[in-house]
Design a protein around this nucleic acid. Structure first.
Length: 260
DNA sequence: TGAGTATGTTCAG
DNA sequence: TGAACCTACTCAT
């Protein structure tokens, strides 16, 4: 699930397997071929992420920028490099491992200054230590837009997607349609702290698990409301609701999330 | 095997 | 607001 935690895990993996080594970069599919030539054979200096954006920093001010979008996926393999299967946008071959990227919405080479420009348009990232949540609070506390819109706005908070949005609103009993400026400072502080903890947990576990121990039932997906339409709320038993909000699915419990 | 659906973003109208 | 991008998974047949 490519929300912020997925990208952060890629940073970790790519740092372990490729950083410090010369990497062969190619585009079997062809759509990244011209840019791949710019970095092919260079040493990967670092990997980084801001929200859902992934950056591979090579020597000479060249950065591969990847955004997975809805479908994008990296695979990682060790040992013998096999012929590409399907549409491989970018292939990276390091000394011990190789990775294939399929279906991203963005895969391009940028300069450091272009990366700065891109990052300046992104909001606070709960997974970055250097992030400033005050910038997000300023936007939210002045906005008439509903929390459901603000939480998914990458220029407000970077890295939160539809699953974390639905789950964090539930965990704080917040009506998704509550205007940002009605939230209040204390509740915002709690929501932000929870996002930091939830995304960090997602990085550790490689999946989104948001249900507190006292509400868990068996195994399987551990979420409160995301894609649980019509099923009973884990807390109060009310049927989980679904509606389309700005062309995205929004899930919530009308009983637990009635707070105004 | 095929239909339906999805975690995201951008752009046209 | 809807289409496009173009991949993988689940479920029904």
């Amino acid at each position: 699930m490519p929300e912020g935690h997925t990208i952060r895990r890629l940073v970790r993996t790519h740092t372990q397997r490729f950083v410090g080594s010369s990497v062969s970069v190619s585009s079997p599919q062809g759509r990244f071929a011209r840019d791949a030539e710019l970095v092919d054979g260079r040493v990967l200096q670092s990997a980084d992420a801001h929200g859902k954006h992934l950056f591979h920093v090579y020597a000479d001010d060249l950065v591969v920028h990847v955004h997975l979008g809805l479908y994008g996926k990296f695979s990682l393999s060790a040992g013998e490099v096999t012929p590409p299967r399907g549409q491989v946008r970018m292939r990276m071959v390091g000394p011990t491992h190789w990775a294939d990227l399929r279906g991203p919405i963005a895969c391009e080479v940028l300069t450091e200054s272009e990366v700065e420009g891109l990052r300046s348009r992104l909001g606070a990232d709960p997974l970055r230590r250097d992030t400033d949540p005050e910038t997000a609070w300023r936007r939210i506390s002045r906005s008439r837009a509903p929390l459901a819109t603000l939480l998914m706005d990458q220029s407000v908070i970077a890295g939160v997607g539809n699953v974390y949005r639905a789950e964090v609103l539930f965990r704080h009993g917040l009506d998704p349609l509550l205007p940002g400026r009605s939230l209040g400072r204390e509740r915002w502080d709690a929501v932000w702290a929870d996002l930091v903890a939830l995304l960090a947990d997602g990085v550790r576990r490689g999946g989104i698990h948001t249900v507190r121990p006292e509400h868990r039932t068996g195994r399987g997906r551990q979420v409160y409301v995301y894609r649980r339409t019509g099923r009973p709320c884990r807390v109060c038993g009310t049927e989980i609701q679904r509606r389309s909000h700005a062309s995205r699915n929004l899930f919530w419990c009308a009983t637990c999330q009635a707070a105004t």
